[in-house]
Amino acid sequence: MSSYHLDHLQHLETEAIHVMREVAAEFERPALLFSGGKDSICLLRLAEKAFRPSDLPMPLLNVDTGHHFPELNEFRDRRAAELGARLIVRRVEDAVAAGIAIPNPGEVSRNRLQIPTLLSAIEEFRFDACIGGARRDEEKARAKERFFSFRDSFGQWDPKNQRPELWNLFNARVNTGEHMRVFPLSNWTEMDVWEYIRRENLAVPTIYFSHRRSCVRRGGQWLPVTDLLPPKPNEEVRDLVVRVRTIGDIISTGLVVSPANTVDDIIAEIAAARVTERGSRADDKSSEAAMEDRKKQGYF
């Protein structure tokens, strides 16, 4: 390298690697939250960059809501196997059966039920740190997150009393029963994630690319028709060429009508986009403080 200069992706990468290594060095029992989504795909590559040629010094953890896109779970399992990483999956169904997660009458979404499921997995394995792929540009409450985000023994986030975070000196100290959520991608934008996927030539689940799917129009978005989400009698089912921009549960992830077939197409589409990524997530629209409320309880 002749000029001592990092471009924006190299800059974000070196920062994220530093954060990951701090986790490996400072915590006894860390885990990496891996869903198979685009952000956690970047996390996995960064973990390889941080720790190779050693094995990843932490298992992968995923909370399966039972409402995942099947393509996502297949990808998750395959990728973990390729890396030789240990994958721990904890299911919302099991947490409900065990009385750990209790659905409200008529509650269909598994979004809220992920919280107790995750916290119970953290307790079960005594994880003291969980690395997640959340980004500050996603949402207003996340914009206030630290890289090292402290959670008390109830798994709660106290946004008004966060630890100051200075330079690249991360305070990783927790007492027994408390834990840390760590977000190496804090400073990444949606565009950075896709540019990194392109630069690193990373595989992503096929549902990010355009495909044909039966959809219904609900709440201003196109939702995929599945056994979990059958069309109502008065709803018209349309056969559309769509893709997902962000992946949530299959019953609440809005599909974007899009011909994007390659990562280049996706980057061009995002560059021209006029709505944010989370604009297609029904779970964030319920109230202006929806994400803040879920995060305080222990959501990722």
């Binding site: 500050r136 207003k140 206030k144």
Partner: peptide, 24 residues
């Protein structure tokens, strides 16, 4: 309102914590 992301901030019209924003 774009940067005041926490409920208490919107209610009191003040900024409590550091909010990070990204643009290019």
């Amino acid at each position: 309102n774009l940067t005041d992301g926490l409920r208490a901030e919107r209610e009191q019209g003040i900024t409590i914590d550091v909010a990070y924003r990204y643009f290019a």
